[in-house]
Structures are given as structure tokens and as C-alpha cells.
Amino acid sequence: MATIITVTSGKGGVGKTTTSASIASGLALRGFKTAVIDFDVGLRNLDLIMGCERRVVYDFVNVIQGDANLHQALIKDKHCENLFVLPASQTRDKDALTEEGVENVLKELAHQGFDYVVCDSPAGIEHGAIMALTFADHAIVVTNPEVSSVRDSDRILGILQSKSRRAIEGREPVKEHLLVTRYDPKRAEEGEMLTYTDIQELLRIPLLGVIPESEVVLQASNQGIPAIHQKGTPVAEAYADAIGRFLGETHPLRFVDYEKPGLLKRLFGGK
């Protein structure tokens, strides 16, 4: 049975797609056969972040409506052997995602031997977002250290606890993971920004990782290469650590403490 991981947040622009791309790539790099699905019907973007936008022929809705089979619609990733992308439809209505249709696609992926399916949720709490979390086994809640993002994350946690299949059927609840993104250790230390411990205290779910704010994310999306491939950068390593923790390994948190620059560094600049 494939494990279904939903990347969600409620609020837009916090890094859901960036996270979906990097988590899916990271799992594939670990040798797991992984699919990543864009649930944002009408506003697809995962294809751009994954760098496969020119190879989209069929999409998720085509598969649901039987216009194409899954094999035709899945796009093999350029950077990872075991990774496949299922793009969202750009033209259809979001209601084209029927619960039954989504369930069938997920079952078919499991049947084809996928270990993980990463569902990239759209922002908001409407149909597309609900469909993305309905079948979740795990939910990665992406949160920025900022009031509206934290509040929306709490709302989405409430929805997970009431509308997911696991909740409705009274099974073991969806495993929730907090991923704090765009974190600036300096501003947090100076009391200008919520710290990751503040956010964890407010949302009361286990912390999967903290991704530092970084220009690398934009460089990665510019090129269509998921940030986790930007070797040696804090963002890539923070994502790799998060994947390790997801798989049950212990990794100390990195890139969360601010080091005051020494005198020389302050005088002569440099990063």
C-alpha cells in the first residue's frame, strides 16, 4: 500500500509546492518509488517547480475522466530515477476532482508499486484542498513564522481532524507534521519573528523541520530544479534532514540559531 503524504497549509505562498517538490524528490533519492500530484486544478505550478512543464500532455483530470490512462499522464522526473509527476489540469474546473476519481487514481498508483504519493494541496479550504487531504496518511503542514499563516495552519488541522477519511472512518488519525519554512534565525532571535518553538506551542503538533529563508529557493524555481538538489545549501540540507526525520531517523535541528558575525566579517562583509 502506498503511503499518502499531503502537503497543506491553508494559506497561499508559504512554500507548499516548493516543499512538495523537495519532499517527493528527497524520498525518491532515498530509493522510494514516489509520485507527486498537483491538486491545484486551474492554477497548476508543480510542473514549473519540477521543471517538466514542456512535457505535460495529459493531466490528473484527464486520468480521472478516463481520457488518458495513468501511465500516459505520469511524467518521469529528470533528476530522480524513481520519481513521477502528475500535473493538474490548467483548463478544467476544480469540481472535476471527484472523490471517487481521486481515490481510483491513488489506488492505481498503489497497484503500480508506488511507495509514496505526495499530494500538493492548493491554498484555501475549498474543494481542491479537501480532496488533497481526504486520503492522507500523513499531513505536512507548511507554516511561515507569521500570524496569518499560523492561524490558517490551525484551521487546516481542524479540517484534517474532521474531513479526512481516517477521521470519518474512525481509524488511526492522520499523522501531522509541522514544517516551518522561510525561517530567519536572526529575526527570531531578536524577537521580531515568531520562533519555531512558539509555532509548535501554538499548533501542538510534532516538528518535522525548519527550512531557513533563502535566495536558493527562488534560484531553484527559476531553473525548475527542486531546492533539495541545490547541494550543500542550508535549504537543501534542511529538507534532507526533514526527510530523514519523516523516515524515523534522528537529526538535530540545523540552521535555526543565529551566529553573530565576527568583527572581521562585519568589517569586510561577505556572506
Partner: peptide
């Protein structure tokens, strides 16, 4: 230091 205000409000 406005983070503490944010936390309280949240």
C-alpha cells in the same frame, strides 16, 4: 520585539 505580541494574539 513584536513576536511576543504575535504569539499572544494567536
Amino acid at each position: 520585539a513584536t513576536a511576543s505580541v504575535a504569539k499572544e494574539r494567536l
